[in-house]
């Protein structure tokens, strides 16, 4: 198979207790499947759904370690919890972005994206001109209390039309999610989430355009082959696959 050198916009080389071995495994598998760069989201679930400031800092410390040790492989995203203090969020963003060159912000499940608690984070993202990657899902049995769905992302996008938001987990958001954010050009979609169900990527390309879609694996929850397979197996052109796997991320992260 002729693999396209890819950039993974959503990776967790560490998820849980820090382990050099898991980082090495992640890097080796990525290399094998032609993933040349991964954006590090941090071990976001290690301290539960609502981590304190000290805990958020510890997650980002680990990401810094990885970015410093393997700058040719990892790009940092600053993990933030909107429920932490405004002062901490500002300081932590500065520490990661100004201090260490992180190129994005990662939000998980403590607060819905439609909550005004995100305002300070969005203001910092705009100030630094970096994207915000938001965990998003439509779960049949209902989302967790602070877990965003695509409607929440659409709300956020309408309030911050200049900010770039990456809606994570196309596979979990489904067609309804694509429709929710279709009219907000500042929302990009990450391809991961769930099993590689056929058809959804083609729908996203058709309705959003390939320029609004980014490859993401969410490793180690998912494997590179299962998540790459949904790109390689989709009924879209080679050029569109190159955009999704690589070019859109290069442009977004300023890596060209």
């Amino acid at each position: 198979m002729d693999l396209i050198p890819a950039i993974d916009i959503h990776a967790h080389p560490v998820l849980g207790q820090f382990s050099e071995k898991s980082v090495e495994t992640c890097m080796n598998q990525a290399r094998w499947f032609s993933i040349v760069r991964m954006c590090v989201m941090g071990s976001v679930s290690f301290y539960g759904e609502n981590p304190g400031e000290k805990e958020v800092r510890a997650v980002n410390d680990e990401s810094m370690r990885l970015v410093e040790k393997y700058p040719e492989v990892f790009t940092g995203f600053c993990f933030l919890n909107p429920r932490n203090s405004r002062r901490f969020i500002i300081e932590e963003t500065e520490r990661c972005v100004s201090g260490k060159g992180f190129r994005g912000i990662k939000l998980w499940v403590s607060t819905k994206a439609s909550d005004p608690g995100l305002d300070v984070i969005m203001e910092k993202a705009l100030e630094h001109r970096i994207p915000v990657l938001q965990h998003t899902w439509y779960k049949s049995m209902g989302n967790r209390q602070g877990e965003s769905d695509p409607g929440d992302v659409a709300c956020l996008a309408s309030r911050f039309p200049e900010a770039v938001i990456i809606m994570a987990h196309l596979g979990g958001c489904g067609i309804r999610g694509v429709i929710d954010i279709e009219r907000f050009p500042n929302v990009l979609v990450e391809t991961g989430g769930s099993q590689p169900a056929s058809g959804i990527l083609e729908t996203a390309v058709k309705r959003l355009g390939p320029e609004r879609i980014l490859f993401g694996s969410d490793t180690p929850c998912r494997s590179f082959p299962s998540q790459l397979g949904r790109i390689y197996g989709a009924g879209i052109s080679r050029k569109q696959k190159e955009m999704i796997l690589r070019e859109n991320a290069l442009n977004l992260l300023g890596l060209k």
Binding site: M1, Q29, W32, F33, Q195, P196, A197, S198, S223, F224, P225, S226, Q227, L228, G229, R230, Y232, G233, A234
Partner: peptide, 18 residues
């Protein structure tokens, strides 16, 4: 592969593990 519910390529690629 669970075709056509899933992309066939995903199962194919799982067999590529070194």
């Amino acid at each position: 592969s669970h075709t056509p519910f899933l992309y066939t390529a995903s199962a194919r690629m799982k067999m590529m593990y070194r």
